[in-house]
Amino acid sequence: MLKIVELCKTYEDGILALHNVCIDIVKGQIFALLGANGAGKSTTINIICGFIPASDGDIWVDDISLKDNPRLMRSKIAYLSENVMLYDNFTGYQNLKFFADISHSEKRKLEKGNISENMEKSLSQKEYLTQILRDVGLQDDFIHVNISKYSKGMRQKVGIAIALVKDAPLLLLDEPFSGLDPKAAYDFQKLLYKLRNEGKTILMSTHDIFRAKEMADIICIMKEGEVVMTKTRDELESEDLNKIYLDYIEGRVAPMPLNMPSISNFVVR
């Protein structure tokens, strides 16, 4: 689903942000990126989203290369940041409609009209979008209220609704739980499980070790721009992730070799 191969990023001021990062995520997995500040989590996500160019390496989403077709690749990803960014002058519904409009028309253009409009055929666009906002747990009373009056959790819900409407197979979540109250975080977690069950692939960067262990199918620890550990949920079942994390971060354990099982079958094109 998502393949990152030998991704490198050196900033203009010479700082090496990423060095040979390789990640392989299978469809329907939740993949958590752990790491201290400056470890390269956000840089990785920024490169996938196309905010900054990579210095070397490539990324494939659904066999579409970032280098070859960045615009088509961007249609395959949906992004949700720590502080959900929305237009404050518009209501939740209007924000959703705007992004729905641009994602659909862009898709139509890119895929030359072959987009499947499954739900929209049976429902009008308004009903469809309202239903999505309800599905992500936004109260009806707030659907037509200006975003400026939303709590952080509510913004998060609209953000995820926007990501859902884009109908992208890969969700990129940058620190999605930070700042959420426990109830909102719990709701959000449930929503992510639901999405995973629907076949979405989720890549999230987080500081929250416990939630990562609870939710993620694969956990990856990054340090100073390199991947130092990648383990599946089963491999970590009986281990103390907190301790492992600190061991890696403080350098008490040597990084895992690159030819780890999860990406050994990867073929570089």
């Binding site: 989203c49 960014m85 929305l86 641009i102 862009e106 898709k107 890119l110 926007i162």
Partner: peptide, 14 residues
């Protein structure tokens, strides 16, 4: 600053 630019740039917009 608001962040909507970033969100927009994740769409296949030119």
């Amino acid at each position: 600053q608001v962040g909507t630019l970033r969100l927009l740039m994740t769409y296949p917009l030119k």
